[in-house]
Design a protein around this nucleic acid. Structure first.
Length: 166
DNA sequence: ACTCCGATTGTT
DNA sequence: ACAATCGGAGTA
């Protein structure tokens, strides 16, 4: 069968938009580097980076090439392969502990840095259209864990969803 | 070469 | 509140 297939519905994201976003890894003062190169690439590809020397975070590149922008996937609602996710996460945990948080979902999905630059419309990792979330159910607020532009409301999540990181 | 610190998480 | 853990970015 599909023994190791895992999938989830995106329920929390953050946007990092263009060189004038001071919180972005591709902010103007930084420019293009080896780490953020994917953000300057084609839309629909993955930007995967390591944080704190420990964890992986997954972004979808969103705007045209050479205009660095990406959406950080911060939480998913498990849809398929929950037992595999629990195994990868090292325990039988609830929704939030399992896939709520940018480094938690990458671990649950088995996403690592070798998927940096990967086109997100094909295996082994892709994003597909799902059931639309009505705007009325989406909250916007400040992005988490940043210091610059800390008040820009570029974090979005399904209101009250049990898998949202916080 | 050397310092500081981060789009986090788990434990104390 | 704090450790884990290391490459990127800034300074020299």
């Amino acid at each position: 069968m599909h023994g190791r297939v895992t999938a989830g519905r995106i329920v929390e994201t953050e946007a990092y938009i263009g060189p004038h976003d001071p919180a972005s890894h591709a902010a103007e003062r930084i420019g293009r580097t080896r780490r953020n190169a994917a953000m300057f690439g084609e839309p629909g590809t993955a930007y995967v980076y390591r944080i704190y020397g420990l964890h992986w975070c997954l972004n979808a590149v969103t705007d045209r090439a050479e205009f660095p922008s990406a959406v950080l996937i911060r939480a998913i609602d498990p849809v398929q392969g929950i037992e595999v996710m629990r195994e990868r996460r090292g325990g039988a945990w609830d929704g939030r502990r399992l896939t709520g948080g940018p480094a938690r979902l990458t671990q649950a999905l088995g996403v690592t840095g070798d998927l940096d630059h990967h086109p997100l419309d094909r295996p082994p990792l892709w994003i597909a259209a799902g059931v639309p979330v009505p705007d009325a159910k989406v909250d916007a607020g400040p992005r988490i864990g940043i210091t610059r532009a800390a008040d820009w409301p570029l974090r979005f999540h399904v209101r009250g969803h049990r898998c949202v990181s916080r």
